[in-house]
Design a binder for these strands. Structure first.
Lengths: 147, 147
DNA sequence: TAATAACCTAGTAAAATACTCGGTTATTAT
DNA sequence: ATAATAACCGAGTATTTTACTAGGTTATTA
């Protein structure tokens, strides 16, 4: 979707070109874009000169909708939110994973495709320069903390 | 680990009892606890009356250390942080997944085993009542938003 | 000495993920 | 008209991860 955002300025983008650029198989891309189209995130046009374009502005598409479109869920509870994880009851850690799912959705829905496009390095506009994704500068990376 | 937290007040907890309580196979638990022991999160004692106890206070063990111990990583980038996801370079979405990994670690490391134990319903102390995990009340659940 | 329970290694089953294969249909350019 | 293009579609397969099984050995306690 970032590739499409960047390249659609020159008209519809073929899956073949995305396949070549990103090293993802054409057939697999077709399956992904079939879901993206059904979610009204992209529109396809057939025949020569055809391809895909985004169905909305890059700043009106957030990452959560993209992931939900191709993955179907961002709920990481074992029971998929049904609260029957342990013998029909909530398991001991249901609340933890439920809350994490909410945080996950909050994070991904807050980031727009346009942000990823602008910080991708391939700048096709004369607009403002690249900005960072979020402003949380000094959160230690996992694995770097002292044990 | 929540089961162990709750039940260790009556002395070492056998994996057999956790297996029965949580519906997880004994052999699988042995593999998990082997890793937890090597990470100094639990200590085992053999023979009759033996079992496992936590190696630290319930409020000194966070969920990130537990997950890192058994899963090995909380880095969800394709390249495991090596930044060589696309032909030796950072892929278009590396920054997104890198930042999400940081958020993920931040969330899980901020939650202590003691918090999960206290809100598990099985309250073995006369201490303060159950509290919520985090105070972010009105973040809509994934799937409930208007499309 | 017998029972218990951790400790250990190797192999297997199930599920999710990524991908292949072989088409058809619609659109455009010649 | 016809050929090329590129989306569209369904079924099957390979790979990887996750969870689990099997069959032991070793240490500790009653």
């Amino acid at each position: 979707m970032v590739d499409l955002s960047v390249n659609q300025v020159r008209g519809p983008v073929t899956l073949k070109s995305i396949s070549d650029n990103q090293g993802i198989s054409l057939s697999y891309l077709e399956q992904l874009f079939s879901k993206l189209r059904k979610s009204s995130l992209v529109t396809g046009s057939r025949g020569p000169g055809g391809g895909y374009v985004l169905a909305k502005n890059v700043d009106e598409i957030n990452i959560a909708e993209i992931v939900l479109s191709v993955d179907e869920a961002l709920d990481i509870t074992e029971c998929e939110g049904k609260q029957d994880c342990k013998d029909g009851q909530r398991c001991l850690t249901h609340g933890l994973w439920d809350e994490l799912s909410i945080q996950l959705y909050g994070f991904l829905s807050g980031i727009k495709l346009g942000q990823l496009m602008r910080q991708s390095g391939i700048n096709n506009s004369g607009g403002p320069g690249n900005r960072q994704l979020v402003d949380s500068p000094s959160l230690g990376k996992p694995g770097n903390e002292v044990h």
